[in-house]
Computed example of a mutant assay.
Amino acid sequence: MKKFVCVNDYEEQALKVLTPLARDYYKDGAGEEISLKLNKEAFNKIRILPRMLRDVTKVDLSTTVLGEKVSMPLGIAPTALQRMAHPDGECANAKAAEAAGTIFTLSTISTSSIEEVAAAAPKATKWLQLYVFFDRNLTLELVHRAEKAGFKALVLTVDAPSFGDRRNEMRNNFNIPLHLKYANIEEYSIRNNVYNRPIHKLFDKSLSWEDVSWLKSQTRLPIVIKGILTVEDALLSIKYGASAIQVSNHGARQVDGVPASIEVLPEIVQAVEDKLETYIDGGITQGTDVFKALALGAKMAFVGRPMLWALACDGENGSKDVLEILRREILLTFSLSGSNFAASGINVQVRRWYIPNRPRGNL
């Protein structure tokens, strides 16, 4: 295999080797995919303003997230059905996160179970992304399994009462491949005879802010609310007891025409101040993207699709390589921009050229 030096190299190869079913599932967005394109284009319209003659002999990318120290401000976002990319699936990506000293987020609708991932990467900082099911007993069962397995946080996804208008999935009549399973709800599905029911049909569409309080009362784990795109919902996250929010448009897979996550990040950060931690995902493919997100106020950035491309190309080794490629790019951007500590708030600026008279972000 030729040497890959960036995420785009992995993506290009992955789209060649994945089955059409998996390729379309992983890469597609909702509707006309305007927001999918915007996720990347928005980063390209942000400019870094480097500061010169600063001592960058030692650049420290480490930071603390929900009380846990991580080696860099980049983690792995939840993505479903990772064994469509490689037989080791989520376990391989969890091992990569463990080796990199960062966070792995397991999707509720994963093809490896909570327990399998915990056994594969016992020292990794693991979070469970959570959908709330109409059967709350199933939801609580997942929460308690995550607690028992040593997971450190729950990432409550709030932007998916149902799945979006994903047209290639409809064209392909997408169903999970027969040799795979929704590992976390396999026993429940058999027990309750919902095995052949589309997974999103089990989601609770009545979910409200009061349910955040309910979930908080049921667990000792901190709650990250994922899918926030407005100041109003960010402030409600504080009101109802979240420890953090993840600014996200669900990989542009839900509603086409929503903004890119990075576009709304500054106003959300400004509104919540230091009342909770703010993370971001969506469109991040290189170290400069992470740097820009941090400069605009994010505490941590997360990548999803790049880890799928890595799995498809070379399994666990590919996943480890992608994280180290991104680490190198982040480190290089810090150094060349005159910043030496990810958690310090050093005054390196970015400017959003396409939105006149908006405040600059600082790093």
Score class of each variant (00 low, 15 high):
102 T>K: 00
307 M>E: 09
52 M>P: 09
194 V>E: 02
317 N>R: 04
294 L>E: 02
350 V>I: 03
151 F>H: 04
57 T>N: 12
356 P>Q: 05
311 L>Y: 02
126 K>N: 13
296 L>V: 05
109 I>V: 12
349 Q>S: 11
113 S>L: 13
11 E>S: 06
273 E>P: 06
168 N>W: 06
222 P>Y: 10
336 L>F: 03
290 V>H: 07
133 F>G: 12
165 D>L: 14
52 M>T: 06
99 A>N: 09
331 L>D: 11
126 K>G: 10
202 L>I: 01
279 Y>F: 15
20 P>Q: 01
138 L>A: 12
182 Y>T: 00
34 I>G: 11
254 Q>F: 02
166 R>E: 05
233 D>N: 12
182 Y>E: 09
284 I>K: 04
331 L>W: 07
140 L>W: 04
268 I>T: 02
324 E>A: 09
220 R>V: 15
211 D>I: 01
349 Q>F: 05
309 W>M: 08
320 K>T: 00
346 I>V: 01
291 F>P: 08
126 K>L: 14
168 N>M: 15
260 A>F: 08
22 A>Q: 03
70 V>W: 01
190 I>G: 14
314 D>Q: 11
316 E>D: 13
178 L>A: 15
172 N>C: 12
294 L>R: 06
183 A>C: 06
265 L>A: 11
179 H>T: 03
32 E>K: 10
255 V>I: 13
59 V>D: 00
109 I>E: 14
64 T>R: 11
138 L>R: 10
203 F>N: 12
10 Y>K: 06
198 P>G: 03
39 N>T: 01
213 S>I: 07
18 L>Y: 01
342 A>I: 01
182 Y>Q: 05
341 F>M: 14
204 D>F: 04
309 W>Y: 12
224 V>A: 11
173 N>R: 14
200 H>A: 10
278 T>D: 10
246 Q>T: 04
291 F>A: 11
32 E>A: 13
261 S>F: 07
252 A>P: 04
90 E>G: 05
175 N>Q: 14
213 S>F: 07
353 W>Y: 10
325 I>V: 04
204 D>N: 12
12 E>A: 13
303 V>D: 02
299 K>S: 14
192 N>F: 11
322 V>C: 10
109 I>W: 07
232 E>K: 15
50 P>N: 09
290 V>P: 08
326 L>M: 10
230 T>A: 15
326 L>G: 01
172 N>I: 07
131 Y>I: 07
88 D>R: 10
120 A>R: 06
235 L>E: 05
201 K>I: 00
342 A>P: 05
285 T>M: 15
176 I>A: 12
275 K>N: 15
157 T>F: 03
169 E>D: 15
337 S>Y: 00
